[in-house]
Design a binder for these strands. Structure first.
Lengths: 208, 208
DNA sequence: TCGTGGTTTTACCAATTGGTAAAAAGCGAA
DNA sequence: TTCGCTTTTTACCAATTGGTAAAACCACGA
């Protein structure tokens, strides 16, 4: 037996274990992001992964274990751009670079965006700790930084928290609501238009 | 038997039928908006409605029937604000009024917002016709109107479709991601800050 | 009072779903 | 080749879930 999800023990996972866990997580990301937690069945994940259901349960303790593992693994990637805002940099440039990274991520990692969106819409039942202990301090810090920039007159005055919400909302919209965007933009090049738009939006908002 | 969901026949629904259908739809909105279609069980709806499961199936043909009925009923309410943009009005004022109505709706009808969000994130499997035949013409029309306003120099140049997306995104964010917003805004008055912020955002973007 | 219609409950299903037990199959080192 | 381990498959469950059949209940006009 090779229990894989314990906390303290790390009995070196074999090559084949690493590979199959990766395959399963990849398949699960596909399915969870499209159907949400409850909408996803282990059979769907198994089929997408090309493995049998019991075989999947050999690598993960259960459906929830897979989901939580995904959430944990993606959280950092998702928050990294926020961490990279440089307090010493040029304010407008820093914020617009953040916006650019976020919109790029929406087109590059739409499944990850939808995974989080599904979870948060449904009251974030498995993300409480992440929001409270991971995201909140980061947002508080960034909001304080933006407030300083505003006081120094280097950024036009806005509520920094609502600013952050709006950046998330406008950029992730392209991933989360892709089905709607696709219908309404039929044929048009969505990504380049989106990049241009959000740059304009926040440039006009924040230029002092 | 009083089959209720047929298309052509309308054998006058009794008072009690109207009442119970309303109760069921209200309960279903609660549950569907919080758990999504697949995440919702008929038993949950039944309990929330204070009726037995078979009794619910006496009023609706099935789970999907309830869901579709909800979607249909809410579509109009949801699109009305867009219809009320007055082509003869003052452009900036008209758009800002639309923004205001949308943000107000997010706080007044968060369940409705989440119901749609859940559906669209999961590829809108039951909303294709609504998007194509209901929403798209309206958006095309509004985009054309905004383009005219831009050409006349009464609104600063932006891609009107991305503008519309961003209005939806920023306003509905407060309903759809309420769990996240609540954590990050702990204690603060979210609504009034949101109203002020989006007004500022689109005023600065669109003022010529 | 008795029907007669609409309404509600009780008692069930069959299918799906997350999960398990245990046998079978691989497979690398000695 | 064989031993001992990991990995995979086969054969199952018990609970849940959407849905149905039919009996029971109820309201109200003749």
């Amino acid at each position: 037996m090779a229990q894989a999800s314990g906390a303290g023990n790390a009995p070196k996972p074999s090559r084949i274990q690493q590979k199959n866990r990766r395959i399963i997580l990849e398949a699960a990301l596909d399915v969870f992001s499209q159907h949400g937690y409850r909408g996803t069945t282990l059979d769907q994940i198994a089929e997408q992964a090309g493995l049998s259901k019991p075989n999947i349960l050999y690598y993960f303790a259960g459906k929830e274990d897979i989901h939580v593992t995904l959430l944990n693994a993606l959280m950092d990637t998702w928050l990294d751009p926020l961490r990279e805002i440089d307090p010493e940099g040029e304010p407008l440039e820093e914020i617009l670079r953040y916006v650019r990274r976020k919109v790029d991520m929406s087109f590059e990692f739409p499944r990850e965006s939808r995974l989080f969106a599904n979870e948060i819409i449904q009251d974030a039942p498995r993300m409480g700790p992440h929001l409270e202990r991971g995201l909140k301090p980061l947002v508080d810090e960034t909001a304080a930084l933006i407030d300083r920039w505003i006081e120094e007159g280097r950024v036009a005055p806005v509520d920094p928290r609502h600013l952050i919400f709006s950046i998330w909302a406008t950029t992730q919209h392209y991933a989360d609501f892709e089905a709607q965007v696709a219908v309404l933009m039929e044929g048009r090049d969505v990504q380049s238009g989106a990049v241009t738009f959000v740059d304009t939006l926040y440039r006009r908002l924040l230029t002092p």
